[in-house]
Design a protein around this nucleic acid. Structure first.
Lengths: 127, 127
DNA sequence: AATGATAACGATAACGATTATCGTTATCAG
DNA sequence: CTGATAACGATAATCGTTATCGTTATCATT
């Protein structure tokens, strides 16, 4: 039985109001002023719970995990310059799931695409 | 100046001869009998070197990284049942890179697709 | 073949992100 | 209002990975 919690509300609300794919620690420091008693463990706990509830997406781009409050189908680019993550919106999923299901014998539930390269700003700086 | 090393050869050879996407530790234990003095640090060191040399692919599916000696374009499925990783071969990349380049202002170097679901064996068991 | 510079090694300490523990607090059905 | 317990905060523990450091192996140059 899942109970209501102010902390979980605040975490989800904060995450959904931003588009910079914060880490658990980013969220922690962002919420600390509003909820001084907040613990980092609580942020991790709730992020993983929100993920299993399908309300949040974890982007496991190596080292530190980042989170996204937008659960609609879209992809990400991990920038080699600033090591940030930016959204990549395509019109469709290119039929990736159907093609994959034809080529193998198991069950596909979801998929994620992670591009590697340089974001708009870092691209300009490199010329 | 990169020097030759028996350990690196053995790691690459072992990785390329198998299709189970082993972790660094898997490779370590697999090679230990043949090279008793091998250190786990050496395995990590060489895997990351082989990765930057483009001879190996790191699959950063959350927790523990797995490695793939097949550097040709193909994708992976992370099985929710056995938590293994299996290959997904598609005929093409569905034009993913071109579509993404049109929809955003930066530079794309590569991409990876990770499907989530159940492998052939785990699918059958679930019926 | 011997030499010397240094890349790579092995062992292990350090690191950092995440998870587990545990006593306390907040939620909520009865 | 009350009791059961989900969730909390603080912090210790875990675990994959990286850094350190003294030693060894590689290899271009004698």
């Amino acid at each position: 039985m899942q109970r209501h919690s102010r902390q979980r509300d605040a975490i989800l609300e904060n995450l959904c109001s931003r588009y910079d794919h914060p880490t658990a620690e980013d969220l922690y420091f962002s919420l600390k002023p509003k909820i001084p008693a907040l613990s980092l463990a609580t942020v991790y706990r709730n992020l993983s719970q929100l993920e299993t509830d399908g309300k949040v997406i974890r982007i496991g781009s190596g080292g530190t995990a980042r989170y996204d409050g937008n659960v609609n189908l879209h992809y990400h680019l991990s920038c080699l310059g600033c090591s940030g993550v930016v959204d990549i919106f395509l019109d469709d999923d290119c039929g990736l799931t159907e093609k994959a299901e034809k080529s193998f014998d198991g069950t596909i539930i979801s998929h994620s695409v992670l591009f590697t390269g340089y974001c708009s700003e870092c691209s300009k700086q490199l010329g």
